[in-house]
Computed example of a mutant assay.
Amino acid sequence: MIDVLISFVSVNGSPGVSTAAMALTWVWPRHAVVAECDPTGGRALGVFDPDGSHGRPGVFDLMLQARTMPLHRAMSGQLLVLPDGTGRHHLLPGVSSPREADSLDWRRLTSLFLELETVDVLADCGRFRSRATPAAVLSEADLVVAVVRNCRGSLGSFARAVDVLRDEHGVFDHEGLVVLIADPDPRIHQRFAHGEIGKELGLHVVGALPWDPVGAAQFTDLHRPGRKFETSPLLTHARRAADEIGRRAMERMSWLRKPPPVVNGHVR
């Protein structure tokens, strides 16, 4: 099966883009790697390996090793198996500092992702910043998923950022940019109907993740899940969203990567 590259980004604040990417990878129906591509640094290694028993694997060492060895060998040495019981889902930790991110060749890293076979890559690009955002990871993605908090401020900020995402990072068409809604605490924020959000933004809404601080803490604090974690609201909704996101990414990938037609011996 051909792999897909799906990039996740948020616009402002902390609406849960990393939690979304982790939760979706956890329930992804195929082999998958969640790659921390946030230039401000990765945090998931501390969640799943708090004592540092796996050393310090990540995208920086992957780039170094990929210069001298086959990609799959270099990649396998930098991955951490997620403890979801499947053995199919992995974490590629991010950089340890913004300075390390500045030295990364994001275009080369994106090319490495696209060279993988039978593995989908879910890239957590963090908060959208016009200059610091890893542009190649967005522009070369089969699908860009914007994680937007369901409140007036975040929706307004995202609506203003859509044109920048398209113009500066190559996400030009409506099919290439979709929205995943993160519902906030209903006691604090006024929330809007998901269908109305899609109409107002003129973009497809591929799902919504509920307000579930207990479930989210398993991906942001320390992973010590209880018996009800697999049936938590977060993972239940993530499974639905994963199916829709995967379907759209596969469809768009088939369109983006199809060979050009040949007419009378010439490529058109």
Rank of each mutant, 00 (worst) to 15 (best):
D124L: 00
V262A: 12
T236P: 08
V262L: 11
P98V: 09
V9W: 00
F219M: 08
L80E: 04
V205Q: 07
F128G: 01
A136C: 07
A23K: 02
G46W: 02
A238S: 15
I188M: 12
A216P: 10
V178M: 10
S18H: 08
G13F: 05
V267D: 09
G52H: 10
V9A: 08
G226Q: 03
D124S: 06
G55I: 08
T133L: 13
S157K: 02
F8D: 07
G94W: 00
L234W: 09
M250I: 09
T236F: 08
E175W: 06
M69S: 12
Q218R: 12
L91H: 03
R131V: 11
F172G: 13
V33L: 11
N150R: 04
E36L: 04
M75Q: 05
V206G: 08
F8T: 07
R99L: 14
L143C: 13
T236V: 13
G13I: 03
V145Y: 03
R99A: 15
E115Y: 06
D102G: 07
T25P: 00
S154L: 00
A101C: 07
S10E: 07
V205H: 04
D84T: 01
F60L: 11
D142T: 08
R224W: 03
D142K: 05
F229C: 00
A182M: 13
R268L: 15
V95E: 02
C125T: 07
L64W: 06
F8N: 05
L45C: 04
T86D: 04
P259L: 10
L24D: 00
R227D: 14
V33K: 02
V144P: 01
A193G: 05
V144G: 02
A35E: 04
V179C: 12
E175I: 02
N12P: 01
R227H: 10
R107H: 13
A66H: 04
Q78Y: 03
E244N: 12
R73P: 00
V267T: 15
G176N: 11
V11P: 00
D61Y: 07
T110P: 05
R252G: 13
P184N: 04
D84M: 02
F60Q: 11
D105R: 02
S18R: 03
V34D: 01
L92H: 02
R224K: 08
S103C: 09
A216F: 05
V11G: 14
P29T: 07
A35Y: 01
I2L: 11
V171F: 01
R257N: 13
R56V: 14
M22V: 01
G94T: 03
R108Q: 14
G202C: 04
V214H: 11
V179K: 03
G13K: 05
H169A: 03
L235F: 05
V17N: 10
